[in-house]
Computed example of a mutant assay.
Amino acid sequence: MNKEEKKQELAARAAWMYYVAGLTQQEVAQALGVSRQVAQRLVSSAREMGIVSVSIRHPVSYCLDLASALQEKYGLTLCRVAPSGALSDEPALQILAVEGAEVMAQFIADESPQTFGIGSGKTLGAIVDALPWLERPQHQCVSMIGAIAQDDSGTRYDMPLKMAEKMQGKYFFIPAPLYADSPEDKTMWCRHQVWQRVADRARAASITFLGIGEVGPGCPLNTEGFITDEQVRQLNNRGVVGEMLGHFFNHDGERIYGETDQLLTSVPLESQTSRPIIGFAGGQQKYQAIRAALRGAWISGLVTDEATARWLLATE
């Protein structure tokens, strides 16, 4: 890489941090290890070089290399790495959200009718928020997870509805809670014709977008009241580190079944599937869960942040 290319790379990193992550110029300077004056010049030069317009168009080649290495290591059909550098999880999530939105937008831009299976979670929520408004009423969004929260209200993680609104397309939801009150209730929910028709749509989705959740004390499923502290402890004792749509798996990506499976109403998932499933996740707290999802081939594509990508490549 010549001197000019290195300058563009550094300017692109500064632009991502300043315009996307919302860092101040002083914080950009600290993250890049330069003075505030240099950081200011980098942000200005990014605009002058045409890297920044409405969006940041310059890919960071180091991240492209990371993505290529991850794709080869785990046999992925798609991999994107957001140029988050060594930022903390919160600003890194904002950069990941923009990168994830760009990936989603490429599929949404297709003129032919598409069906998108959509999961839930904070990361997916940030990505959908970052999506541009695209007029694609021919597309459909299908929920992969129950739309009813613990208190019988609509879940605040209803990402498929938000995404459908962004596209002006149709939205199909799972008319059930994530976990039923009893095995008998699960049978009742899942035998309903509406549940079965929506689940069939989800299984036949053109592509599926899912988050990857960690499993431990204070994880989202725990704090939202879906699994108790004792259930978390039992799952961890059995080697569980991650979950997708309430399906638990261990360090090696092997499915671990338990009492919650008798209550789970989300659309079934399978590892080693031929279905195109892209996982969106990053951050240190999710390292183990993401690696497990990759090892078990629960996903065929991954969009993550730079620090996570480096960790995945450095571990077996």
Score class of each variant (00 low, 15 high):
4 E>C: 01
6 K>I: 06
10 L>A: 01
14 A>S: 00
16 W>I: 00
17 M>R: 01
23 L>I: 02
24 T>I: 00
25 Q>L: 02
26 Q>A: 03
29 A>S: 02
34 V>L: 05
39 A>R: 00
44 S>M: 05
46 A>Q: 00
49 M>R: 09
50 G>W: 03
56 I>E: 00
57 R>V: 03
59 P>V: 02
61 S>H: 05
64 L>S: 12
65 D>Q: 14
69 A>K: 15
72 E>F: 03
74 Y>I: 06
74 Y>F: 13
78 L>V: 05
88 S>N: 10
89 D>E: 15
99 E>C: 14
109 A>S: 14
109 A>K: 09
115 T>K: 15
116 F>S: 09
118 I>C: 08
121 G>L: 11
121 G>I: 12
122 K>T: 13
123 T>H: 04
130 A>N: 06
139 H>K: 08
140 Q>M: 08
145 I>S: 13
147 A>G: 11
152 D>G: 03
153 S>M: 04
169 G>T: 06
175 P>V: 02
181 D>P: 07
186 K>R: 14
187 T>N: 12
187 T>D: 11
191 R>F: 03
196 Q>A: 05
198 V>G: 04
198 V>P: 05
199 A>W: 09
203 R>P: 06
203 R>W: 13
204 A>D: 15
204 A>Q: 13
205 A>W: 06
211 G>P: 08
216 G>V: 07
217 P>W: 01
218 G>S: 07
222 N>K: 06
223 T>L: 13
227 I>M: 12
231 Q>V: 10
233 R>C: 11
240 V>D: 06
243 E>G: 12
245 L>M: 15
246 G>I: 12
246 G>F: 10
261 D>P: 04
262 Q>H: 14
267 V>P: 03
274 S>R: 14
288 Q>W: 07
303 V>E: 12
309 A>E: 06
314 A>T: 12
